[in-house]
Every structure is written in structure tokens, then in C-alpha cells.
Design a binder for these strands. Sequence first.
DNA 1: TTGAAAGCGATACCAC
DNA 2: GTGGTATCGCTTTCAA
Lengths: 356, 356
Amino acid sequence: MHPNRFEKPAMNLKQLSELLSLSQTTVSRALNGYPEVSEATRIRIQAAAQVHGYAPNMRARSLATGRTQAIGHVIPVSAKHEMVNPVFADFVAGAGEIYSKNGHDMLLSVVTDDQEEAAYRAFKAKRNVDGIILHGPRRGDPRIPLLNQIGLPFVVHGRSSDSTEDYAWVDVNNTQAFERATRFLLDLGHRRIALINGLAHMDFAIRRQCGFDAAHADRGLTPDPTLMLSGEMTETYGFEAARSLLARPDPPTAFLVSSMITTIGVRRAAEERRLTLGRDISVITHDDELSYFRNGAEVALYTATRSSVRQAGRRAAEVLLDIIRGGTGPRQVLLEAELTLGQSTGPAPTPVRGRS
Amino acid sequence: MHPNRFEKPAMNLKQLSELLSLSQTTVSRALNGYPEVSEATRIRIQAAAQVHGYAPNMRARSLATGRTQAIGHVIPVSAKHEMVNPVFADFVAGAGEIYSKNGHDMLLSVVTDDQEEAAYRAFKAKRNVDGIILHGPRRGDPRIPLLNQIGLPFVVHGRSSDSTEDYAWVDVNNTQAFERATRFLLDLGHRRIALINGLAHMDFAIRRQCGFDAAHADRGLTPDPTLMLSGEMTETYGFEAARSLLARPDPPTAFLVSSMITTIGVRRAAEERRLTLGRDISVITHDDELSYFRNGAEVALYTATRSSVRQAGRRAAEVLLDIIRGGTGPRQVLLEAELTLGQSTGPAPTPVRGRS
DNA sequence: TTGAAAGCGATACCAC
DNA sequence: GTGGTATCGCTTTCAA
């Protein structure tokens, strides 16, 4: 049994007001910064609140005001792999910062993807959030019209290609980032670049693919479709994808990978073939926290996640709070991806064969 | 402006009861499964609730009952590095599963470590959670007596060495896991094993250190203290730690690393020296999702995180809900770490020098 | 500038 | 079995 389970409950407005021989009204007004209370009583009240550790009961307040002062995040986990997208942690951390600053709570709802719709409806019906952040949008994502219909303010982390809906979003420029990364590899002389991407219906994967294609088109090249793979971004997937590609008679000379976790698997597959990164093979990864260069910049790291995802979280939270307050700020925010690439000073890579 | 901001609000108990020409009392009772309502009216009421999409307003309910049906998680982010511990995502996912099943909400509070105490007090004062999960316990963690004093039920994810408090916890057996991993490397013939560990005051790091020491002691060996490093588990840290160790005249022949992210840096340092993993050097990492073997098991992966952290999250949530309900289940749970190690069939490694 | 009183939307006690 | 009503702790008119 917990030792202090039945500790005296925290003080409430009535008790505080009686203590001060004032009405609840006055105390409430003083604490909420209403102008019509005299400065003298205000500081007296604030001091008393401080001393007795008074804080308003949020449930009661939100019942009275109709606002909940809380934002909901629905975190979808793949029913198959029980996988949590690792960017959530950083995004949520960024958003959480903003919520804290503005006195909002963050509600997380972890659901398998088949129960997501129910989760949104529940948020609405139970009335415990003022707004929602939508994670992991897909092509023509049905959740967007659903949320518009439900009538709960929301902001999408990412966008949804092919959607005709009007909605607020915060996204990083995936297309441009992957276009630049691809161009960098092309400049190094690579002609067989593998793209290991997220699931094909995920919007971010679609946009990264676009950038990949655009860079090739820009050079009058057509990427080999058999070098472009999509899957759930696990280490295992990266290992198996890279392994099969490296086993081909015409293996790629470079990899562009959509996730740091997956990159670990790709590297492992390269190691298995005794390929030395930066000499025999180049790997560029998304979602990393630092950049480094080796051998005249043959290996570069595309830096995006940790800080920029966090930044996206902050911006999304700001946009949502503004919407809830009926503000007039921007509703669509495109963040440039942080991108650090080395100069192509090294010699052009030569295709290598795996040496079994 | 959001198109549906002023959508009609969801139905409430009063409306539903009027619709059915019944009292609010009866409707409430029927929906909450009280026995004294006739089966006929119960199904009529349930059907109506279903049709009209009625769900109780949680704020009102919790005001009336005194229970909030919500659990708070305080996520500390390092003020210095703005780092989110990557295990949170998986832990929170596991806990979230259990909360959903039990109709509880999860409240996340993201705070820099200097504001943690305030966050706990706020949870108590604002009365918006029934209980708390404490993350990232340290040696003699002051938050544990604080929470006991505050009087909010809580469960610690991990333990706190040197704490004399009585508290509930769910932990994985870090000591045993690292003892076994170390013994595995010793069996392979390694005598200079580096330990790259988390910050020295973190409880998990202390226990892993113990296991490392115990395995050595078991063989009558004493680990070289200069091979044991502690720091915040970033990739950069792993890179720099491994780099400096490999630059020594007597470099380690194996690494035992406390985090997958950090391992990426260690591998990078090994690559820089043109060391081939599993041939020139062995690396065992914590926090990974799969195990693999190379060259007669010289490289093994210590599998722990993704699934076992998630499992810890589930268990912790169960323990906490039980405490809140005044149940009599276990209050301390020690989970065995999932651990897969290869047999040491390969030849004993020979110490290598970094070249260049 | 301050206070009394009416909600907000549920639960739960007490009659019938 | 069913219904009236006080209650939870706050905000917010409306009066004074």
C-alpha cells in the first residue's frame, strides 16, 4: 500500500477565499489577471496562493470554461511490428515545450492503426482536448476529412499528397532535401544510387522519392526502379534490403536511406561484404544528429532529425494554439531541412562487387 | 480559419435522458453498468447512446468522482543537449496500451531537468492525474521522497540505488544482463573490454557497471578503470569515446556499449581505423531489436530495448493502476533482460593496433 | 472594486 | 427499478 495515499487534498478556491475573508470571485479574478481587482488585494491574494500552494483544479476550470487546455496526440503503432516511429519522441518533446509555456497539457493516445479513427472520435466525444496533432499522414489520408468533419482544430505533422481538404500543417521540405542529397551523390560520380525509403503510402516517402527522381531528371538520368525499395523503417529491413541489393551482379555504389535506424542495417550489410564505407560504398542517411566526412567527403551525413523534428514540433504546437485562440498566424509552415553535405573533392567512385 | 470550428457540440447526459424520457440518473447508471437498472431499459439506453454518439464528458465525470482517469509521465529532457532518452518512446507506447484498455488517459509533461520537481507538484496541485510514472531514476533520487511526500501514487521505471524510501518500481535486470554479456566476451578470450556507459549517476548505468565488474571478478580479473567511460548516450559521445580508446597504445579488443545510438558512434570510430567488426574488434550493444552473429559469434548483439522496454511500460502501467485501485498485486517487478548471445566457437581475438 | 448566485456535466445519496 | 437533488471546484454574469 502506498504510504501517503490519503494525504490531505490540495487547497481549493473556497478554502483560500475563506482564509482571506474574500469572495471566491475576487480571488479567482485576482489570480487570473482580471483588471478590476485592486493591486493591493491582488498581491495579497497572490502571496497567499503561493504560500498555501494553491493551483486551480483544471477539471473544474475546464468544465466551467468549456476549454480543456489540453492537446491530444494520437500515436499510431503498427499492429504488425509494434513499432513506434522514432521521430515521435523528438516531435513530442518540441511540442511539449510550447504547451508547458502556455499552460497546456499534452494527452497521448497510443493506438494500433486500425483504431485510430475511434481515438479521434473519442477525443471529441470525451471533450478532453481542445485540439489535435495528426501524425504520420499518408497519401489522401482519410483522417483529414474525418477531423474536419468532427470539427476539432488540428494540425498535421507533414502533409497529405492528393488531399483536396483544407488543413493546417507543418512539414519539412523532404523533396528538396532528398533532391540535394541525390544531386550530391550524382556529383560524386555515382550512377547507381539505391533509395531505401519508408512505406510507399507515407507522404514523407512520396516526397523524398520525388526529390530523388528530380535530381536524376535534372541530369538527364533515369533512376533504376529496381534500386528503389520501400518498407517499414527497421534495422532488419535496412539489412535485408541492402543485402539483397549488394548481392546483385550490378550493386549500387551508394545508398540514400530514409532513417537512421534503417541505416544501421545497411551498414551491417556493407560490413558483411567487407565493404569499407566511404571507400567502397557511400551511405547518406536521413535522421541523424551530426555530420561527418571521410575520404574527401565521399561519406556525408544528411542531418535532419533530432533538432529539426523537434523544431517542427514546436512550430506545430504554436500553429495549433493560435488556431484555438482564433489567431491569424500562418496555417501552413514549410521548414527547410538542415542539410550538411561535403564537397565532392574525392575521386569518382568505381562500382564494386561484393566479395562474398 | 478552420472550417468547422463551431460545429455543434457533442451530446450530453441531459439531452440524452430527455430524448429517452428518462432521468439522468437512470441513463448514467445504465451506461456505467450498475445492476439496479432493468435489462430492457439498459439496452434501449445503450442503443441510443451508440446512435447519438454520446460519451460522458470526462472533465465533469472526474470532478464528480474525484478520480481523473489519467496518468502523468514527466519526460525530462537534458537542458544541455535537449536530448530525449530514446527509450521513452517504447516505454510510453507500452504503458499507453494498458491505459487505453483501462479507459485512462496519458498526460505527458516535457520539462528540462531543473523544472522536474515543479512538474510533479503541478500534477498534484492541478489535480489532473491519479498517478505518476517516474522516469530515469538516479542514485538516491530526491524525486522519490518528494513524490512520497506529495502523496501521489507512483511507479518508478527503474530503481534508485541507495534510496531508503519505500516505493514501487519496474526494472529490467541490468546487472545480470551486463554480467552475462561481459562473461561472453571474456569467454571469447577478450581481456581488454571497454565499457561505454550512461552518466555515472544514472541508476541503470550503476547496475550495468556492477554486472561488468562482477563478471571480471568471477574470473579473478580486475577491469582496467581507464577503459570504463560514462557520458550522455549520444552518437557523438560514442564516437569520441571509442576514438580516444582506440588511439591508445593498448586499445581494447571489445566494446560493451549501453545504447544503440552510441554504438553507431563506436562503429564509426572503428571504421575510421579500418577495423573490421567481428574480425578486428567486437562490439556488443544494448538496446537493439535483433541479434546477429558473424565469424563464429564474435559479434553478438545484446537484444533488449524495443520489445523489453515496451514490456516494462506495460508492467509499470499495470502496477500503477493496481495501486490506484487499492489492489494487492506486486509492487516491485524485475524483468529479465532478453539476451541472445552466440556460442564462442571462433578463435580468441588478438589485440589489434589502430593503423594510422 | 467586491460579492452572490447561476451554471458547466457528470455522480451518488436518498426517497419512492 | 426509477427519479429528484446535492455536490464536485471553478468561471462568469449581474448587482451592489
